[in-house]
Nucleic acid binder design. Structure first.
Length: 106
DNA sequence: ACCTTGACCCTAC
DNA sequence: AGTAGGGCCAAGG
C-alpha cells in the first residue's frame, strides 16, 4: 500500500497546481498532471488522497466532469459552497459538473 | 530491483 | 449507458 510519509517532488508539483486553482473552477486529474509535464493521472489522485486535507481536492475531478470516486458527496457540498458551475437536474449520477464552463487552464 | 496499491484514463464489448 | 480490460505514473515494502 502506497502510504505516504515523506512527499516527493512530484507531490509538491501536484499540490502547487491544485492550490493555484481559483474558486469556482475545476481541473481534471490528467490536466493537472499535464501542467508540470508529468503524465500520471493516477499519481495525482494519490497526492490528493495524501494531502486531501491541505489542498482543495474537490476542484480536481475526473474526465468528463465526474467527481472523485467515493468523495462525490463531499465534493458536491464544496461545489455548492464555492458556487462551481454544474448541471443540476441530473438523475443517474445525482449531479454532473459543468466542466464546459468550470474548466480552468493555467 | 521487483511487486503491490491507488480519489485515473482510454478503448472495446 | 453500463461493464470489462489494459496501460499510464509514482511511492511503499
Amino acid at each position: 500500500m502506497a502510504v505516504f510519509s515523506e512527499p516527493g517532488e512530484y507531490t509538491e508539483r501536484v499540490l502547487d497546481v491544485v492550490e493555484s486553482i481559483p474558486p469556482g473552477r475545476v481541473m481534471t486529474y490528467g490536466d493537472v498532471a499535464a501542467v508540470f509535464g508529468r503524465p500520471g493521472a493516477r499519481a495525482v489522485g494519490m497526492v490528493l488522497r495524501y494531502s486531501g486535507g491541505t489542498v482543495p481536492w474537490w476542484r480536481v475531478i475526473r474526465s468528463g466532469g465526474h467527481p472523485p470516486a467515493g468523495k462525490s458527496a463531499e465534493a458536491l457540498a464544496q461545489y455548492e459552497r464555492e458556487g462551481t458551475p454544474m448541471l443540476p437536474c441530473d438523475s443517474d449520477a445525482g449531479y454532473r459538473i459543468d466542466y464546459d464552463s468550470a474548466a480552468w487552464l493555467p
